[in-house]
Simulated scan of single mutants.
Amino acid sequence: MFESFYIYIMSDLLMALVTFLMGLYFYKSKGKAANLLSGYNRRSGEERKNFDEDSMCCCYGKRMMVMAIPFVAGAVIDVFWEGIGCALAWGVWIILFILLLVKRTKTEKLK
Rank of each mutant, 00 (worst) to 15 (best):
L88I: 10
D78I: 08
E46N: 09
I94T: 02
F51A: 09
I77N: 01
R42K: 15
L88K: 04
K30R: 11
R48D: 00
A68F: 09
T19E: 10
P70D: 11
D78Y: 05
G31P: 02
C59N: 13
S44A: 06
E46K: 07
E53I: 10
S11Y: 11
L14V: 12
A33F: 07
E47V: 08
A16I: 07
F71D: 00
R48E: 08
K49P: 03
W93F: 15
M10P: 00
S11P: 00
E46C: 04
A75G: 04
D12W: 01
G61Y: 10
M65H: 00
P70I: 15
G31K: 00
G45T: 14
K62N: 09
D52F: 09
K49M: 13
G23E: 06
Y27L: 15
F71Y: 05
L13V: 05
F71R: 02
N35P: 01
S29H: 02
Y60T: 13
Y27K: 10
L88N: 05
W93D: 08
N41I: 08
L24N: 03
G31Y: 06
E53Q: 06
S44Y: 06
N35M: 14
A34Q: 00
G61D: 07
A68H: 03
G61Q: 04
V18M: 06
F80H: 10
L13C: 00
E82P: 06
W93G: 06
A34D: 02
M22T: 09
A33Y: 05
F20L: 08
L88Y: 08
V18C: 03
A33L: 07
Y60A: 14
M15Y: 10
I94G: 04
C86V: 13
A73C: 07
V72E: 06
Y60M: 14
Y25L: 13
A68I: 03
G23D: 01
M15V: 12
N35H: 13
A89N: 02
S11C: 07
M10D: 10
